[in-house]
Every structure is written in structure tokens, then in C-alpha cells.
């Protein structure tokens, strides 16, 4: 029952307590700086990648969809990372690819968190509806993730919209569970009963009292899910199921694989850089999410 996102949350939960069980003053000070460092690294990575994506047309030396050199050229003064099988500049492909990979990650993450938070709010606030919703959530959690993703992508066709929708619709379950457990704690508190007896509607209580309290948790979830979504998009594109017209980092790897770049010296400039970018993006979001979760997840705080 471990989906990637759920497992990652679990991993964070797991990584935390040991670090705080430090009696000596020096190590406590060390821990604070370590947390700040973690956050700083994450923020730097993500900011840098977003800047590259936004200013892609100004940074990239060439149009990524234009034949600008001899195919399969090694790195040179004109092409820092060489060219691919049809003479596109790989560096420019990667710079513009940041737009696609980040856009898919952010949109899919947004969909995931909206669904997860809504389901979590309803399930946590209305116990009877909640048990039905959670049954459904568990089904989504158990379905084999990557194969299902592939099947859906194969049937629905290769487009950016489909990639975003499929990822967003499949990975919300662990977020829903987390939000639900938090909502259950909040809605059992006295002030909810007080508000009810003053005549407040359920809708009013959920939106005005409960939602604001889980909002920060949702934001933390969002950041973590974005990293996962970027990794998933890369896997899908790598299998040739991405949008053929919108080249992401995963698409670059797909072509490198199809053309056997990893069997030649070309792996160093055609395979290594896109994977590093995917890894850095995922890591950046994961680190920020980790820091946010430590701050906003009450479960981790009280432990």
C-alpha cells in the first residue's frame, strides 16, 4: 500500500525523530543549522530551475526545435552539450525542457493537492461519508501505480494535458489520508461544537475554521507532490508516452535511449545532464517539503 508520495511522507516522518533526540547543546545548535541548510539548498535549487524555465528564450543559445548543427556532434564551442540525432542543440533542449517538466510537476501537484485536500476535508469532517471515501482512497493507494499510469496514457493518447491529468488523478490518495487525520483532530475540538450550537452551517465551519488550519499542511504536501510528479512525468516520457511536441527532460532521455546514446561516449553529454536535472528538481522540492512538513505537521512536532 505504499505509493511513492505516501512512502516519501513516511520517509520524512522516519527521518525526523532521530535527529531531534540530541541531548547535547552543541548538536542541537548543529541540528538547527542543518535544517536551515536543508531548506536553503532546496529553495536555491528550485528557484534556479524556475528562473531557467522562465527566462529560457533568453538563456538558450538556440531554438530547441531547429536543426542547428551536424547530428550526433560532441560538445564544442558552439554546442556546449553537443547535438542530438537530428541536430538539435541539447543544451537548448534542456533549458526549454525545464518549462515542460516544471509545468507538468506544478500543475499535477496542484490537482493532487486540491483533490486530496477536498477528499480529506469531507472525509474527516463527516465520519460516515468519510468511511466510504477512505475505502475508495485505499483502492487508489493499492492499484499498481506505474503500470496503471502507462495503461491510461496509452489509451488516452500522448498530450501534455493527459500526462498532467493522469498523474494528478492518481497520486492524491496519501495526501487525502494525511489531511483527513488532521481534520478529524480539529473537528473533534470544542470550538466546532460551540460554532454548531451557535447555528453555524457545516459549510461555514469547514471553510472558515477547519480549512485554514490544514492549509499549511496542504502547502507542504503540494511541494512534496511536485517533486514526485516531475519524476513520474520523466518515467512516462521516457517510455515514449509523453507529448511528442513538448520535449521535457524525460523526452530527451527517451530519444537518447532509442538512439543508443548510452552505448557510445555520448552518454556523458546526452544522458547524464537531463537525469541530473530531473534529480535536482525532485530533490529541491523534496527538501523544501521536508522542511515545511517539520514545521506544519503537528504529528511530527509533538513526537
Amino acid at each position: 500500500m505504499v505509493s511513492p508520495t505516501q512512502a516519501q511522507t513516511q520517509a520524512r516522518t522516519i527521518a525526523r525523530p532521530a535527529q531531534r533526540r540530541q541531548p547535547r547543546a552543541t548538536s542541537r545548535r548543529l541540528r538547527v543549522t542543518a535544517t536551515q541548510l536543508t531548506a536553503a539548498v532546496g529553495v536555491t535549487l528550485v528557484t534556479l530551475l524556475i528562473l531557467i524555465a522562465v527566462f529560457a528564450p533568453f538563456i538558450a543559445p538556440y531554438d530547441p526545435a531547429e536543426r542547428v548543427g551536424r547530428p550526433f556532434s560532441p560538445p564544442s564551442a558552439e554546442h556546449a552539450l553537443g547535438t542530438n540525432d537530428i541536430g538539435h542543440d541539447i543544451l537548448s533542449e534542456l533549458i526549454f525542457g525545464a518549462r515542460i517538466s516544471l509545468a507538468v510537476g506544478l500543475t499535477a501537484g496542484l490537482i493532487t493537492v486540491v483533490i486530496g485536500t477536498t477528499v480529506g476535508l469531507l472525509a474527516g469532517y463527516f465520519p460516515r461519508l468519510g468511511s466510504i471515501l477512505m475505502r475508495f482512497t485505499d483502492v487508489v493507494l493499492v492499484l499498481p501505480f506505474l503500470p496503471l499510469l502507462i495503461i491510461l496514457a496509452a489509451y488516452l493518447g500522448r498530450s501534455l494535458m493527459n500526462t498532467v491529468l493522469i498523474i494528478g488523478l492518481l497520486i492524491w490518495a496519501s495526501t487525502a489520508r494525511l489531511i483527513r487525520s488532521q481534520v478529524m483532530v480539529i473537528s473533534s475540538q470544542d470550538f466546532v461544537l460551540a460554532a454548531r450550537s451557535l447555528g453555524a452551517t457545516h459549510r461555514h465551519i469547514i471553510i472558515r475554521h477547519v480549512l485554514p488550519q490544514v492549509m499549511l499542511l496542504s502547502i507542504g504536501e503540494f511541494v512534496q507532490v511536485v517533486g514526485q510528479a516531475i519524476l513520474l512525468e520523466a518515467s512516462l516520457s521516457f517510455l515514449g508516452l509523453g507529448d511528442p511536441l513538448q520535449k521535457s527532460w524525460g523526452t530527451v532521455l527517451y530519444w537518447a535511449q532509442v538512439r543508443g546514446a548510452f552505448l557510445s561516449p555520448a552518454w556523458a553529454w546526452w544522458v547524464l545532464p537531463p537525469g541530473l536535472l530531473i534529480g535536482l528538481a525532485t530533490l529541491g522540492f523534496a527538501l523544501i517539503g521536508f522542511t515545511l512538513e517539520q514545521r506544519f505537521n503537528p504529528r511530527l512536532r509533538q513526537r
Binding site: Q8, A11, A15, G227, L231, A234, S235, F238, G250, L253, A256, Q257, F262, L263, W267, A268, V271, L272, P274, G275, I278, G279, L280, T282, L283, A286, L287, F290
Partner: peptide, 18 residues
């Protein structure tokens, strides 16, 4: 381990082959 968890596995596979 946290870094390892962020890297795409298929990419690691390609590097190992290379």
C-alpha cells in the same frame, strides 16, 4: 539516501550500462 531517492531509476540504469 535522500538524494538517491530523488534520482530517476531508469537514468541510473542507463549510466550503469554506459
Amino acid at each position: 539516501m535522500i538524494v538517491l531517492d530523488s534520482l530517476p531509476s531508469f537514468w541510473l540504469g542507463m549510466l550503469f550500462i554506459a
